[in-house]
């Protein structure tokens, strides 16, 4: 048992890191629009969230940054940050949040009615 314990621990550790790193894409509207272009696959706006799973309130209000609502959101956790969270027992959790604000809807008039 003592011989295979390090192997089991290594497998658990690697599995934990590999399965915890993630990219989650959330699309709020059917055909997303955005108010500016980001570089590459990044959305237009981004922030790095440093938080702790032991904090009672973990809330990021993205909506307040978008005058016309949010179009889509992407949350990315890098493998190294999963490792950091694991090592610090969840006291340091880092994630990147990218989001796009939607373009307005509707049409306007050139002349006042």
């Amino acid at each position: 048992m003592a011989k295979i314990l390090p192997t089991i621990l290594a497998v658990v550790l690697i599995s934990s890191i590999v399965t915890s790193c993630s990219v989650i894409r959330v699309v709020e509207i059917a055909s997303p629009t955005s108010d500016c272009a980001g570089s590459g696959q990044h959305f237009c706006h981004d922030t790095l969230v440093r938080t702790s799973i032991w904090k009672s309130k973990n809330k990021v209000n993205l909506k307040s940054t978008c005058a016309t609502g949010i179009s889509r959101v992407k949350v990315t956790t890098k493998p190294m940050d999963v490792f950091l969270g694991f090592l610090t027992l969840g006291f340091v959790v880092k994630q990147r949040i990218d989001w796009d604000c939607a373009q307005r809807t509707g049409s306007g008039e050139i002349e006042k009615p």
Binding site: T33, S34, D35, C36, A37, C44, Q103, R104, G106, S107, G108, E109, I110, E111
Partner: peptide
């Protein structure tokens, strides 16, 4: 020059 924020659409009437 990022232009995606320029997102207006206008209706056109007969006087235009």
């Amino acid at each position: 020059l990022q232009t995606k924020g320029l997102d207006l659409i206008f209706n056109i009437n007969n006087t235009l």
